[in-house]
C-alpha cells in the first residue's frame, strides 16, 4: 500500500456548521465523488498562509487527502491511497 501524490485541483461542496467545514462532495477529473467519512483534519502553515487538510474516504477514490489553501481559495486532492 502506498500514497500517490496528486496535487490536482478539485471542485468542492462543503457544509459550514458550528465553526467547522465539512467536506460533502467533490468533482475530480470530471467525476463526482461523495465523501463517506472525514477521518482527520489538520492545519499547516507556510509563513502566514494557512492550509486546511482533511483525511477522507470518498466513493470511487477510497482514502485520500484533500486541502484548501485559503490564500488562493484553492481546493486540491493531494494524495490518494493505492494498493500498489
Amino acid at each position: 500500500m502506498s500514497y500517490e501524490r496528486m496535487d490536482e485541483p478539485i471542485e468542492m461542496i462543503v457544509h459550514f456548521a458550528s465553526k467547522k467545514v465539512i467536506p460533502l462532495r467533490f468533482l475530480w477529473r470530471n467525476l463526482p465523488h461523495k465523501v463517506q467519512t472525514v477521518r482527520g483534519r489538520w492545519v499547516t502553515l507556510e509563513g502566514r498562509q494557512k492550509c486546511y487538510h482533511w483525511a477522507i474516504v470518498a466513493d470511487g477514490v477510497g482514502s485520500c487527502e484533500i486541502s484548501l489553501d485559503i490564500e488562493q481559495m484553492l481546493w486540491q486532492i493531494n494524495t490518494v491511497s493505492t494498493e500498489s
Binding site: 500500500m1 477521518r39 482527520g40 483525511a55 477510497g62 482514502s63
Partner: peptide, 13 residues
C-alpha cells in the same frame, strides 16, 4: 495511530 485513523486501509497492517 494518527496515520491509521486517517486511512482505514492501514488498519490491521
Amino acid at each position: 495511530s494518527v496515520e491509521i485513523r486517517d486511512n482505514p486501509a492501514l488498519e490491521g497492517r
